[in-house]
Amino acid sequence: MTALSRWRRHGLGILGLLLAALAVAAALGAPLLAPHDPVASDFAQGLKPPGTPGHPWGTDQLGRDLLSRVLYGARVALFIGLCTVLLTAVVGGLVGLVAGFFEGWTGAVLMRLADVQLSFPFILLALTINAIVGLGLRNIIVSLAAAGWVVYARVVRGEVLSVKQREYVQAAAALGLGRRRILFRHVLPNVAPSIIIVASLQFSQFIVAEAAISFLGFGVQPPTPAWGSMLSESRDFLYVAWWLAAFPGAALALTALGINLVGDWLRDILDPKFRV
């Protein structure tokens, strides 16, 4: 293996790991790292530029410390991303398993349902569901999950269809094992890598989607610091305070990039031939 291909294989992955670790560290360490309470405003200190004593990244229009808000924003972003990914992986994975294993009308109904949902753009669907279930942290997770489970179902079903033709599954069936045992002991472990890969790729998509929804004024409500709503608020001040857009924007972009790189890397390691 040449140095270049090794870098391709691992270097970007390590960069991704670093970026993702940084985001995780920011999220976990926010209470220790943040110099201020992210929602405490001090109107007299409004719109101070980065480098102001006490406010290394400056302050927003209400005098809230930007560094603290970006750090706490990482919490919101990763929390929403993680919850959504877990929820969709479990729900979508189960649907995919069932649909793949029990062909016939069960599988057909589930997959047509998925097809219908796939015909709507993801963000539009998430927004619509969000408009129905209402605002708030829990509801944005619910709406993202409700819009995002289909990808798992499709991928897992495809995998299951191919795995269940393999000899070891046929052997297990010939030995007279129960269907549930075959499904969870023999099929599931073999489709798990695909679930993990899809999850890692979906993770960053969910974070960006959450930011988009919060940017549009739905989703996470103020004063809770979320990157999307911080970006949205920054537009009004773009001419006088570039830092309000730059820092949350960079945090969002780098976190999404990091997680995506990790996802690509996992895909290469777990199965070089695998393509989502």
């Binding site: 405003s41 109107f43 004024g217 004063p223």
Partner: peptide
Amino acid sequence: LAIASQLGRLGIKVNVVVN
């Protein structure tokens, strides 16, 4: 948001809904 924060000084929790 500023009014919410002022009321917060008294311990009142204000949930701001942006429409």
